[in-house]
Design a protein around this nucleic acid. Sequence first.
RNA 1: UGGGGCGUAGUAUAAUGGCAGUACACCUGGUUUUGGUCCAGGCAGUUGGGGUUCGAAUCCCUGCGCCCCAGCCA
Length: 558
Amino acid sequence: MKKINNADNFIRKIIDKDNESGKWGGRVHTRFPPEPNGYLHIGHAKSICLNFGLAIEYDGKCNLRFDDTNPLKEESEYVRSIIEDVSWLGFEWGNEPLYASDYFGQMHDFAVKLIQAGNAYVCDLDPDQVKLQRGTLKKPGINSPYRNRSIDENIDLFAKMRSGEFANGEKTLRAKIDMAHSNLNMRDPVMYRILHATHHRTGDDWCIYPMYDWAHGLEDSLEKITHSICTLEFEDHRPLYDWYLDQLETYHPQQIEFARLNLNYTVVSKRKLKRLVDDGFVEGWDDPRMPTISGLRRRGYTPESIRNFSEGVGVTKRDTVVDVAKLENSLRDDLNKRSPRVMAVLDPLKVVITNYPDNELEYVDAINNPEDESAGKRKLAFSKEIYIERNDFLEEPPKKFFRLSPGKEVRLKFAYYITCNEAIKDEKGKLIELRCTYDADTKGGRSEDGRKVRGTLHWVSVKENIKAEIRLYDRLFNNEHPEKNGDFIENINEESLKVIDNAVLERSLHLGASDLPYQFERTGYFKIDSKNSTPDKLVFNRAVSLRDSWARFNKKVG
RNA sequence: UGGGGCGUAGUAUAAUGGCAGUACACCUGGUUUUGGUCCAGGCAGUUGGGGUUCGAAUCCCUGCGCCCCAGCCA
């Protein structure tokens, strides 16, 4: 894969400086360390693109490493989905992914080393007591009564913890640092807790599991990571990693913190996303309205669009909220260049061309992608009866309405000019059919006399078409900041999904073969739904609509 | 004076002592067989105050505001 970008950011500057000073001997080795306890989302995508992108850019390496230190929350299904998502985004990590659990033995030995140096102790306090003794933000904590056990006793007790002689929570191994430290992370943090639980990879080999703060720095150290990039909230933990690594006198990566991605009209927290799934507000983790990578994929987002977006939002230490329109724009931008254009009528209105031969079926040439000549052309069936979009006709058109209305002429794209003569309604007054005439001299959609026709409509032949279900997705929340004041559930957009079951598409969509979403002319980008679509019944998801300045104009006018 | 971090157009980001630039959003106009794309133009910014300097978004002082931290979660 080629280098994605060029804009400067503070992390590149640090790396450039390091390379200049020779700090890491020119090495750049990053890592993406997800906990396999949920599905990846757009926020993770930013981190993935950053870490893997830097490795590509500097001809370095990036490890995919699962931070699986809590058997209570982690499952191999999440491992599977994470691998799938990172690969789909287009990144490689060479050989097999890595696991924190592969280092459990080494971490244990490091812990023993710390005990032997008098820098860790086994503590019998229960969680409530620990909490009480930790002090507060402004008040120092107090020492555990077990803080001064002898090294031999600690060694013995820790061995017993490891061999399963104690129940869950009965004892912990704690670092002996400073209970009065102004940074709470330094107040004798727990290194190991007892958890008689089956781990997704190590099974029942262990009943003590390392805490994140103890494990994470060691993982980075063991893998000889140079730049350990993480989010802002770990800034306070850095002194603790530094302390551990200094005590152990071992390889010491450099941690760099950046601000995580926030998007408006979106929630990006595993807990909240889980609630949307569990309480049935969406179909699942890969619901096309979800900001998960699997949801975006199913919606029709491309890896390229997500990578471009990630680069585009930049990397800083500021806590910010990016406009989701920027994400949408990155998709349009990508798809505009690559997406095959097709005819699809979402809300069909029949048009009878009264002066067209009854049984004729002819084919007109259609351009597949005006942005890419190499995409070529295809044939489109045209006949006496066609469908157009219901909202492309208005009996009493407002000013600047360029579409069909009585007496007006429009172009059927790639086909002919037609003029509307009559609108037929049923007994209830509902419009059911249009009677039009066509100009046989305008085949292909142009006329010799150069007459101006502002309106161009998409259409599908009644004689030759296929039916499909279309799912129109909109933003899941109608509040810019769904998490601010109150329950975010209150801000769910009830109209985030509209299902259309009677759309008609040109027949070339029969197999729905394109990997990329299609552009339905004048409507938007649509992708075959990977879950619900069958050869008998095609289902398309709208990834994103086309920009629509007419709709915008109307909104403004009211 | 608990500790840590952050303040540049509406939003997100460049500019590291030398003309405050870019993208998205928004608004005009042009082109157009997609009211798409594209093109041209426009709107709009350095958190307040003070200081250093020929010159400050940038350096110094001092306010103000916002975010994170008291899991045997990560």
